[in-house]
């Protein structure tokens, strides 16, 4: 008898726990998703300015998206194409550089390897844009400021020190594979192309996507390098430029529409690559 009540109460306890867990998850999910829902709603809002007293719009319109693509002072389409161009080129160059660096530092043995890893660690500890003024003048000396080429140069050369995650991945491929291929008669180049690369698809995809996404996210370098050349802007600084004190109110909904337009492809890319993201971080982390 006593036993039955105890199993009975345990079952209710279990059910209570289950309800609480599901409820808590739902509440948290709402907290996290609400701002995003809000931005999507706002992008379709027909009335009002930047600040309104309510979450759900009173009336809906596509006008914000139309304005977004047809405002000559804020050429969003141009920005979009600029960013696409920069990120496509950066993606190719950065991926090549990162994979090359990571492979060399992980699989090849040469005298400079140890010192280089230490130097890279030190260089990585300086705040990135401490040197941005100097970079600006170097680019100016090369007559490249206010150009997308300069952006590509900066993003790609930054990649050379971002090899850690890819190196962590390469470190997990057994060295015996390389040795076996060496005995089979392969040169280091052949080992790289025929053995290591085919085994490294996840990390190549991850690296490429990260490199592709960077120009959509960064604005501080872009802002310094591009200055006031509005037609060279990337979407990030372009959208940010919509949010000045004078334009904030009139352009807020257009801004949110812009955010939605660029967030959609990035979100899709991200969901697609999240598996690689986790693999990348954990494999790098385990190896330090």
């Amino acid at each position: 008898m006593a036993q039955r009540t105890s199993t009975h109460s345990r079952a209710t306890q279990k059910r209570h726990r289950s309800i609480w867990i599901n409820l808590l998850t739902a509440v948290l999910a709402i907290v996290w998703i609400l701002p995003i829902v809000w931005i999507v709603l706002t992008s379709f809002r027909a009335e009002g300015g930047a600040f309104v007293q309510y979450f759900v719009p009173k009336s809906y319109t596509f006008q914000n998206y139309v304005t977004l693509f047809n405002n000559p002072d804020f050429p969003f389409l141009q920005w979009f194409l600029n960013t696409l161009m920069v990120s496509a080129v950066t993606c190719v160059i950065s991926t090549l550089i990162i994979i090359a660096m990571a492979y060399s530092l992980s699989r090849l043995r040469f005298k400079f390897r140890g010192p280089f890893l230490k130097i890279a660690l030190v260089l990585n500890m300086f705040p990135g844009f401490m040197s941005m003024i100097a970079i600006y003048y170097i680019l100016k000396a090369m007559n490249l400021t206010q150009s997308l080429v300069a952006l590509i140069l900066v993003y790609s050369s930054g990649a050379a020190l971002g090899f850690y995650i890819a190196k962590g991945f390469f470190d997990t491929i057994p060295m015996a594979l390389d040795e076996s291929a060496m005995i089979d008669g392969a040169t280091k180049f052949q080992i790289f192309t025929k053995i290591t690369l085919p085994l490294s698809k996840p990390i190549v995809v991850y690296t490429a996507l990260m490199a592709f996404m960077a120009p959509w996210m960064d604005f501080i370098f872009a802002k310094i390098i591009l200055g006031d050349a509005i037609h060279k802007y990337t979407t990030a600084i372009g959208l940010y430029s919509m949010m000045t004190k004078t334009t904030q109110n009139s352009l807020f909904m257009t801004f949110t529409a812009g955010c939605v337009v660029i967030a959609i492809p990035i979100t899709i890319l991200f969901i697609f690559m999240q598996r690689y993201y986790v693999e990348g971080i954990t494999s790098g982390a385990v190896k330090g």
Binding site: P174, A176, L177, E179, S180, A181, I183, I195
Partner: peptide
């Protein structure tokens, strides 16, 4: 050579 871990591709 035959490796301990076989080192098959």
């Amino acid at each position: 050579m035959v490796f301990q871990s076989y080192a098959l591709y």
